[in-house]
Simulated assay, not measured.
Amino acid sequence: MPQTPIGPKDTLGDIYYKTYTEEARGDAPHQAPWGLKQKDTFLEFGPCRDWFLNLFPPGEVNRQRARTHDGLYHAFVVGEANTRAANHQIVREWRMMVKELEKTKVAFAEEKAKFDSEKKSEVWGREGLRSKLRAAEELLSKERAEWKEVCKKDNQRTFAARSKITDLEAQNATLIKKVEDIESDKERVEAELKAQVASRDKDLHAKDVEIAELKRRLREQTDKSESLEIDLEAERVKAATAEEAKQKANEARDISTPALNIAQTITLKCN
């Protein structure tokens, strides 16, 4: 597993967990890098959070991190439901135990009063008194042992519940980081799309300018072509007029030549 880079604001606990590898520290004893002091209590948020974050060995932290979100959610729901149900039963048993303890205290007080009465009447001897005292002490000892066992189970369940909460907080932080990364990628993609749209708009504008220029040139060429057609037609008309004048001149010449010859002949005869 690649090591996680150490940040400038990382605590000793952060460094402890980020630098863990099974090959290097797998068999080393877990020494939680707590900053807890002996005077700290769990009435404040800081010590509680420190206890939660550094409670579990790195191997377990990595195992939980490897779970899927559905797996974590399933484990949390099942564990939380069982913890709640166990706490409910502990409260019920504790209430019953307290009631039994109160009854025992009342019975003990009654026995003690009876003992005092019997002692005064010297009916109860020393051995009888010691036997009753031992019975009362054994009863109290049994009640204390049961109470300690209930407290032990409650502490174990509370410990498990707190451990699950710590895991969920870590998963929540991971999900928040993923959401932030997705939002960042979304903003980057949107910026790239906007830049591409702007570039395409710029290209389309350039194409529009180019098309307008080509249309202008086409109109100029069309106007020139029409002007050339007009000039060509005028030249054709002029050429046709010149040809017609030439033909008329030739016809006149053809007519005038015989007449001139006749006139010259007449002139010679007269001479």
Rank of each mutant, 00 (worst) to 15 (best):
P5S: 15
F115A: 07
E190R: 03
G7W: 05
L175C: 04
K194L: 08
A191S: 10
E22R: 02
A191F: 01
L232E: 05
D70C: 02
K39P: 00
V123D: 09
D50E: 12
L232V: 02
R144A: 11
W124L: 13
L193F: 01
E244M: 05
K202Y: 08
P47N: 01
K178F: 01
R219G: 09
C270G: 11
E180L: 00
A160Q: 13
Q221N: 12
Y16V: 08
K119V: 07
Y73K: 15
G71T: 06
G71K: 04
T41D: 01
A145S: 06
L232M: 08
P8T: 07
T174Q: 11
R49Y: 08
G128N: 08
E226T: 09
R63S: 15
F115E: 11
D254F: 09
K99C: 04
R92L: 10
K39L: 04
V189F: 00
S199M: 03
K215G: 03
K202I: 10
T11N: 07
A170G: 04
R236N: 10
E244F: 07
R188V: 02
A32G: 15
K9A: 13
Q31P: 00
A66G: 15
L268G: 14
K153W: 09
D185S: 00
D50K: 02
R67L: 07
L133V: 12
L129W: 07
E180K: 06
F45A: 14
V98C: 07
I262C: 13
I230S: 00
R25Y: 13
G46S: 07
L55M: 01
D10I: 01
T19D: 05
Q89E: 13
T158V: 11
A234M: 11
G79W: 03
E143S: 01
R126G: 05
E190S: 06
E210I: 00
E80N: 15
H88R: 04
D181Y: 04
D154L: 05
E226S: 02
E137L: 06
A173C: 03
R216F: 06
L55V: 05
L218M: 14
Y16C: 03
V77G: 05
A252E: 13
R216E: 09
T21I: 00
V61H: 03
N54I: 07
G26A: 04
V237A: 09
L43Y: 07
D208Q: 09
I165K: 01
A109R: 11
R134L: 05
D201R: 06
V77Q: 10
E22M: 00
G71F: 04
I182L: 08
K132F: 11
A242W: 07
S225V: 11
A245R: 15
K37W: 05
F52M: 13
A170R: 00
E22I: 02
A198W: 09
A245E: 13
E138S: 02
M1H: 09
K114M: 13
T68A: 06
